[in-house]
């Protein structure tokens, strides 16, 4: 019962936390670029404004798909805070990712199509890595359950340092940060317009943004698992990781999807295999 309450609470709080993280993100990014930056609450202003806009879409499927996307992201966060099965949670998140791409593909817009294809490539890139991260966690704790990670007693980071880097790759892709912001970057006006998001607008875009906040909370939650033994440890780990993400975002350029697929798979797999071998040896 306590778990259910916690999970329900998480579902209500996650968008607030996610939005605040996005706001802080924009503020720090601005500071890194010697700008003043928007208010911390800016992402909420954006989303509320979008909710108030008149609907303008290409077909009803888009409405269907964004709601399913939001639903799956909420369920992902719910299951995560229930301490449920990591692999199952990830597959639930896949529902949303797939529907999101389906909605973009359902439009006949060339920009959305290109963005959707690139989004599929990003999914192809990070999915195996996340599965491997879960497998390695399961090899350490003996179970895929989140609750077992907390029951384990030692920070996973000691045994899975390389897997944390692998998860970092996945995090960078999922946060849509450079050099992997290839599918929906809002700086790429000419080549992409807004990529996979081009044909979503107004309320639909707002829902996608909220779903994205849930996803961010989930992926950061995964990072936190690596230091599950103490709350300060978790927070330090998250702050350091997120700041590293911001620095990477600001010092790298957007690369091509080919480069992403090849380099991330090569490095991600190499690091995973090394780390898993180390586990075997140890």
């Amino acid at each position: 019962m306590g778990k259910l309450l916690l999970a329900t609470l998480a579902v209500f709080l996650a968008p607030i936390v996610g939005g605040l993280i996005a706001g802080i993100d924009r503020k720090i990014t601005a500071r890194l670029q010697s700008r003043f930056g928007p208010p911390i609450l800016q992402p909420f202003y954006d989303v509320f404004k979008l909710l108030g806009k008149a609907p303008m879409i290409m077909n009803p499927w888009q409405v269907l798909t964004v709601w399913v996307y939001l639903l799956s992201s909420m369920l992902t966060v719910f299951l995560f805070f229930m301490g449920s099965d990591l692999l199952l949670i990830f597959f639930v998140m896949t529902i949303g990712a797939v529907f999101f791409v389906m909605g973009a593909l359902s439009t006949q817009s060339p920009y959305a199509q290109v963005g959707a294809q690139r989004e599929l490539i990003t999914m192809l890139t990070y999915e195996p890595l996340i599965i491997l991260v879960f497998v390695s966690i399961a090899m350490v704790t003996g179970s895929f359950k989140v609750s077992e990670v907390f029951a384990y007693g030692k920070p996973l980071l000691y045994q899975l340092p390389l897997m944390f880097i692998v998860l970092g790759y996945a995090l960078t892709i999922k946060l849509r940060k450079s050099p992997f912001d290839i599918s929906a970057c809002h700086h790429a006006h000419q080549e992409l317009v807004r990529g996979v998001l081009t044909e979503y607008s107004g309320p639909q875009l707002a829902i996608i943004e909220i779903a994205h906040w849930y996803d961010v909370v989930f992926v950061l939650g995964l990072c936190a698992l690596f230091w599950a033994t103490s709350a300060p440890g978790m927070i330090i780990l998250l702050v350091v990781t997120y700041f590293a993400e911001l620095v990477i975002d600001n010092v790298t350029a957007r690369m091509t999807w080919k480069w992403m697929l090849q380099s991330v798979w090569c490095w991600g797999l190499a690091l995973s295999v090394l780390n898993l071998l180390w586990l075997y040896a140890g």
């Binding site: 003043f36 928007p38 006006h189």
Partner: peptide, 16 residues
């Protein structure tokens, strides 16, 4: 000038 201070974004898509 940093217009993002006021929440202004230069966006490429009229639908947004």
């Amino acid at each position: 000038y940093d217009v993002e201070r006021f929440g202004i974004l230069n966006i490429g898509d009229p639908k947004h």
